[in-house]
Amino acid sequence: MKKKFTMAALLVCCVVAAFAAFADLTGKWKGTLKFDDFELPLTYTFKVDGEKLTGSIGSDQGENPISEGKIKGADFSFTLDFNGEKIPHTGKYYGDSTIVFSEFQGQKNRVKLTRAQ
């Protein structure tokens, strides 16, 4: 009996921890997109609702909404429409940081995000 209760309690803790991880991605994140000699500071705003991810990416040039956002565990994906071109993004949430990968015009990009203050 104790073994079944312990297993059930462990399962409940794992589910609660998974939902806490989803909630932690919600908020503002900052990072810098670097390519060649150019650096572009970016602000990502994420909102998690179940397995749905919404939000936007902003810079000093404006803000673009993300679409087709999904999150499962620590992995997430979304699409950014930039001047009519859809740019797929994937990412991984690490708690205190987040890594976002994308490919634009043949160039692979990686942006490390930290929580915005």
Results as ranks from 00 to 15, higher is better:
T79L: 11
K34A: 13
M1W: 12
G62M: 03
C14D: 12
N64V: 11
K47L: 08
F22M: 06
Q117V: 03
N64E: 10
F104W: 12
F19H: 10
A18I: 08
S67N: 04
K108L: 11
L33N: 12
F76M: 10
G95E: 12
K72E: 06
T6S: 15
G95T: 10
S77I: 00
F76G: 06
D24V: 07
L25W: 01
D24R: 14
K92N: 12
K47T: 15
T90Q: 00
K28S: 03
P88Q: 05
D81K: 09
M7T: 09
F19E: 13
K2L: 12
S59C: 13
A116S: 11
A21F: 01
K28F: 00
N83Q: 09
S97K: 10
L53F: 09
P41S: 04
I71S: 05
K72M: 06
T114L: 05
Q107W: 00
T6H: 15
W29I: 02
A23C: 13
G69V: 13
I71A: 05
K86S: 12
W29H: 03
S59W: 11
I57P: 03
D36S: 02
K108I: 08
Q61N: 06
Q105W: 01
L33Y: 04
T6P: 09
K30D: 06
A17L: 11
K30L: 00
V12T: 12
L10H: 06
E103H: 01
M1P: 14
K92D: 04
L25A: 10
L33G: 06
T90L: 00
L25T: 08
K34L: 08
F101G: 01
F35V: 03
Y93D: 12
V16W: 08
L40W: 00
S67P: 02
K28G: 01
D81I: 01
A20I: 11
V111D: 15
D60L: 04
S67H: 09
T98V: 02
R110P: 03
T43G: 02
G50H: 04
C14T: 15
V12N: 02
G27Y: 08
F22A: 01
V111G: 13
I66N: 03
R115Q: 06
T26Q: 08
C14Q: 15
L10V: 02
I99G: 01
S77H: 07
A20F: 09
